[in-house]
Design a protein around this nucleic acid. Sequence first.
DNA 1: CGACTATTTAGAATGATTCTAAACAATGAG
DNA 2: CTCATTGTTTAGAATCATTCTAAATAGTCG
Lengths: 146, 146
Amino acid sequence: MEAMTETTDRRPYRHLVMRLQQAGLRPTRQRLALGRLLFGETDRHVTAEQLYEEATAARSAVSLATVYNTLNQFTAAGLLREVVVEPGRSYFDTNVEAHHHFYHPGRGELTDISDADIRIENLPEAPAGSRIQRVDVVVRLADGDG
Amino acid sequence: MEAMTETTDRRPYRHLVMRLQQAGLRPTRQRLALGRLLFGETDRHVTAEQLYEEATAARSAVSLATVYNTLNQFTAAGLLREVVVEPGRSYFDTNVEAHHHFYHPGRGELTDISDADIRIENLPEAPAGSRIQRVDVVVRLADGDG
DNA sequence: CGACTATTTAGAATGATTCTAAACAATGAG
DNA sequence: CTCATTGTTTAGAATCATTCTAAATAGTCG
């Protein structure tokens, strides 16, 4: 179970390079390092600070300013989605499909709810002069069962 | 159409005083001034800065720190509800019933969607060890029709 | 009226994020 | 490959919303 076009650890990450170029972003060392951390395995939810720590721990020195720049550029390019659930802290989600979130304030933890798992019926129309861009559902959690 | 217990402009605002006392908050000049601005007519969505400007304009000098304290205390007491739709800025909503929001980023404008106007079907269960505290739906708008 | 405790406040502090301007790196033409 | 061009990174300062601190002030209740 590891033959063929196994991209599991190819250094240049052709796919990522192409996505960056398509977005008009040069595939720099920093953007590739952050891209690898972000788009590795599963979907992720990270804050700028968290990603900065990770990059540092992975010995891919990237300044905090660059982490912010990169997260914003990736978001503008549609590679990430910004999720706001807490005042004063932004999460970036690698899942850009339509979907929703559980949020646990105490734990600062964000997890996905597949779009298929929620049905929103009869949404009202957008006010005159505007159109609906997207619908975000945040299910806020608290400790305790039931 | 203005007899009986018309509370429309009574100075002491007995109702507000009672709500504060029930919340264990002394009805100080500042809290009453902010309360009058907040719970006047219709439902409102304000930021701390906005309310501070309003109070200042209304010649009810209140420091910005007090506006923040008061908004937080009112929220803890269930008189207000905090709504987070934008990184780095909190809105406080005088409508504490279950309901949702339209948000227009460009205009920084928040408006209510009555709970009755949205049906959310088959919400998944809360992850083990936690329970659902509340569900927030934010419908993000953009300029343009359609 | 006091005494006791809650509240207010100016100003400093914090935390997340953005800006600035200078050093540096990717790119493409020659 | 080399150079010029233009995009990118970065340290550090700046900004913005919010919270904290400690001293002054104002409710409350006997």
